[in-house]
Amino acid sequence: MKPTTNDTGQTPAPAATKIHDELQALKDSILRIAVNFRELRSPLDQSRAAVPQATSQLDKVTQQTEQAAARVLDHAEKLSSQLAEMVTLLNVAINDYADRKLEGPGRAALEKAEELANISQNDAFTIIDALQFQDITSQQINSAASMLEEVEERLDVMLGFVDRGSGAQSAPAQREKSARKERAFDPHADMQVKHTGQSGVDDLVRATIKKS
């Protein structure tokens, strides 16, 4: 409201009016900024709330691939054990043929069966070895989840600014760090890409042993 007269009943000088107008404009600006801050809060809060949901989904992926890998391992180990037994039995039969100096399609079939059993056993081992992917992908997932948790922390900081800017009295509720899963991972874990391949590692080891 513009002052019309001062205490002595006189109209204020133009400079004072101007200062008053500018202060009023500044006050209006500050109020608008406070409103903007309050409007920012909701989307920031929603983004922050989405992070634990996202990390929980990622953790579920790791958990479920781990369970699936365990089931595959169960069967692959059983298979390789059964194939090993088959190879043993086939060897008994083949040796029996040999001892009795028997030839013919029967012996050839047994020898072929033994060969196939050995190949299948190696295939079972290959399946087992290939399941290493589950450890490596779970590290990649943990790396992604950790990045999301860093975003969550930054959003907490921004929410703090927003709350101060909007004049809120209480600090934003933050997810306790202790409530978060402890994550241990190599951020560079990869099935194919290596900074140093095994032969490079071997060179380093040899060089180190030589020095000592």
Binding site: D135, I136, D186, H188, A189, H195, T196, Q198, L204, V205
Partner: peptide
């Protein structure tokens, strides 16, 4: 381990690891 950065390998050897394999092995 999956770690394959040269400095990591050197650090491991320094603390007393005898040999080092990069996953998948």
């Amino acid at each position: 381990t999956t770690r394959s950065v040269k400095e990591d390998i050197v650090d491991a050897l320094k603390v007393g690891v005898n040999n080092f394999i990069v996953k998948p092995f």
